[in-house]
Amino acid sequence: MKTLFEKIGGSDAVNTAVEIFYRKMLTDERVNYFFDNTDMDKQIAKQKSFLTMVFGGPNNYTGKDMREGHKHLVARGLNDEHVDIVIEHLGGTLKELGVADDEINQVAELANSVRDDVLNR
């Protein structure tokens, strides 16, 4: 069976998705303060690997990296609510790209599966 990553068009589609997704995150006042003082190019690179992972594409995701990468954010108050917002914008992004609802749900499930790593629990 094809992964969503292949279905939506591989890494080119991920590049498009990241552009939409990151704009949503940066304009959402519930989460955008986490991005103050971050380098945009590095963020975009990180989000590409994240989206590739949740779309089922080739990735070298490790729970340890995810934990390390978010430790300082958890210290600044990152919690379940923020993870929900990420999943919400992920869904919105995929909708804009014309992805069907049950596939969006699959992505949300995958994203949900890393929740504990992200929140260092």
Binding site: N15, E19, Y22, R23, F35, N37, D39, M40
Partner: peptide
């Protein structure tokens, strides 16, 4: 850093921003 984010949010794709 600030300009990069603003320009991106104004609608310029990130791959067309060099800094």
């Amino acid at each position: 850093n600030k300009l990069k984010t603003r320009v991106f949010l104004q609608g310029v794709p990130s791959y067309n921003i060099f800094s």
